[in-house]
Design a protein around this nucleic acid. Structure first.
Lengths: 351, 351
DNA sequence: ATCAAGCATGTTATCGGTATCATTACAAGT
DNA sequence: ACTTGTAATGATACCGATAACATGCTTGAT
């Protein structure tokens, strides 16, 4: 570590420029308030001292940190990374900095993170998911800052929401497989009794199951095994379980493309033809789903857009809240899209 | 946004508990300094008021923010996301919060981000890459905090470094292709004259080229086209350029698996057999490289480990620097590994 | 000439913690 | 009995900025 000369403060700058601290502050925050000549003098002093303002002090004084907390299950899922990037992108022009935390799909971890984050006094909270622990809910409410729940459509939103209906995604998947003429239909998801659970994946399964029931079909083939986050192995494993239970299964929906890819590979290994012997679909439209052979039928969501829309919403809300108006809670539904590709095909023998 | 009751401060807690602010502070920072009875009283008051300490104020006073700045090219590349996650994981037990910024592979953007980040007074900086603008270098030096350059091995490190030699990666790739008996060898990279450039990719190309030269081969087939970050399209595009220039090319190294996958798909489309007609290899050991058919020969780096090792290093350094000792600059080389898979095979007709 | 309005700048009082030193009380050593 | 040490707590002074109000000086309308 290089030796550090003590950092210059605003006071040092003001002395060198022969003005008061406030004038320096104004030059930085709102240059138009200062006459050109003094402004130049101050700028020169800043340059000379290579002064970097201290936002910690600034935040304490102004009671605005320009931090936005973003709480996601993981960064390692490209969809969530896209959302983070979209959000950061949208907030950057207004000089907001993201404080990213990830929960590993654990609600208790989410609570811990929210507690820790609130101590940093963020100006807003963005959190993936609509289910939180009681304590987490209370903390967020009490924080008195805008909250945006993303990646699902909450029934009882805390405040704002930007996402899509995972339940409807599940229904769309089931309807697609039904429309192809399949009757023995299964699904692959993760366990819900462990501490790391994918609540949004479970919503998709719930929607999926609801359609099966409405069609008078059994939901026995909806497999829940392994912990979130799902992996290629998860897909291979759960497909194995499914086949053991019901070798005659015709169509499968995996809660994630990652699982779907793993399942597809397992089919290759077992000599099961996809499609033909088995129709397979996933969720998320990951790159890998597009590049697989055959390319996987999936449901596309625009993860980056979720982030961007959230950012735009927050900019509005934060602007208004500084003007002391109360912004109405908004609920944005960004929708989704079924992308039919090579792994789903009509049932071989129509009833 | 819910209505906010004014947040409780440490002073409120101290009054309710009938002690001084300092005692409350001690209960939070070092409970053993306080007698059990008062500690309990204070804890109860904290609970009652649902007091959340203000770390902004704490940081200003103690001159430690417990922020670590991490500057990466993008979060959308799973390798960098892994590094971020590894770093966060390692720092979490010591209650450090990551401040993530991404440069989009632009040095000017990196400089801008560094300037903005320094205003947050981080306790350390982690930055991907070893090349920075002059101003960025100076700012980092002057900051007087530990700096870790990651994802490469700097010749002139600013301070610490954790990474691997991209140059040697390129050499290993070329040696592998040479050893297979190939002579007409090309490579796919991105342009270096645009504002977004992949400097580490370029190092790999440089290493690759050095081996070609030593073997008396031409480096004409090293293609640089398109902007960083590379994409599937980039791979397809640059392979097209290469084939136009040299239809008889036998082996190709792509600076990234992403490019390699794109190139592989392009080969499929053109009816070029991989391997056989063409040996192809990539870099990064992305999931998709493993799942492709055939699976892509690549060079594996442990991105998550880079993050974790960086975190461990920082914990040591930060601990020591608070004890006023000067930690020696460390340079950790995490190495890499050639993973031979299905896309590279011995040359058809040995010379 | 007079005065309100407005621009440019300065003064003062926090923001909510922690560092540092001071104080008190009581136990133990001589 | 008297010093000395230690454990528990308090008092005071910042940390480095900004908010809010105050001041002085122009300028232009009347």
């Amino acid at each position: 570590m290089p030796p550090s000369s003590p950092k210059a403060t605003m006071h040092d700058v003001s002395r060198l420029a022969g003005v008061s601290k406030m004038t320096v502050s104004r030059v930085l925050a709102d240059p138009d308030l200062v006459s050109e000549s003094t402004r130049n003098r101050v700028m020169k002093a800043i340059e000379q001292l290579s002064y970097v303002p201290d936002r910690v002090a600034g935040s304490l004084s102004s009671r605005r940190t320009n931090f936005i907390t973003a709480i996601l299950p993981t960064l390692t899922n490209s969809n969530f990374a896209d959302t983070a990037q979209g959000l950061a992108e949208a907030m950057r022009p207004a000089d907001y900095q993201l404080l990213i935390g990830y929960t590993m799909y654990r609600l208790e971890e989410e609570e811990r993170i929210i507690r820790a984050m609130l101590a940093r006094r963020p100006d807003a909270i963005v959190v993936a998911g609509t289910t939180h622990t009681k304590a987490a809910n209370e903390m967020m409410l009490r924080a008195g800052i805008p909250i945006v729940e993303i990646w699902d459509t909450p029934e009882h939103p805390i405040d704002h929401a930007v996402g899509f209906s995972n339940y409807e995604v599940g229904r769309a998947a089931a309807l697609h497989l039904l429309a192809l003429g399949h009757r023995r239909i299964g699904a692959l998801g993760s366990r819900m009794d462990s501490d790391a659970k994918d609540l949004r994946g479970e919503s998709r399964l719930a929607g999926f199951t609801s359609v099966l029931r409405e069609a008078g079909l059994s939901d026995e083939l909806v497999i829940r095994a392994g912990q979130a986050p799902v992996s290629y192995d998860h897909g291979a494993l759960t497909l194995g379980i499914l086949l053991e239970q019901a070798p005659e299964v015709e169509a499968v929906f995996a809660v994630s493309d990652i699982s779907a890819v793993g399942a597809l590979m397992e089919c290759h290994r077992r000599g099961i033809k996809v499609p033909g012997d088995l129709s397979l679909m996933g969720f998320g439209d990951f790159d890998i789903a597009r590049q697989c052979v055959p390319a996987i039928t999936t449901i596309r969501i625009d993860a980056e857009q979720i982030g961007r829309r959230t950012g735009e919403l927050l900019l509005q809300v934060l602007d208004r809240s500084s003007a002391r108006e109360c912004a109405p809670a908004a609920a944005v539904n960004v929708g989704f899209e079924l992308v039919t590709r090579g792994t789903t095909a009509p049932a071989a023998k129509p009833r």
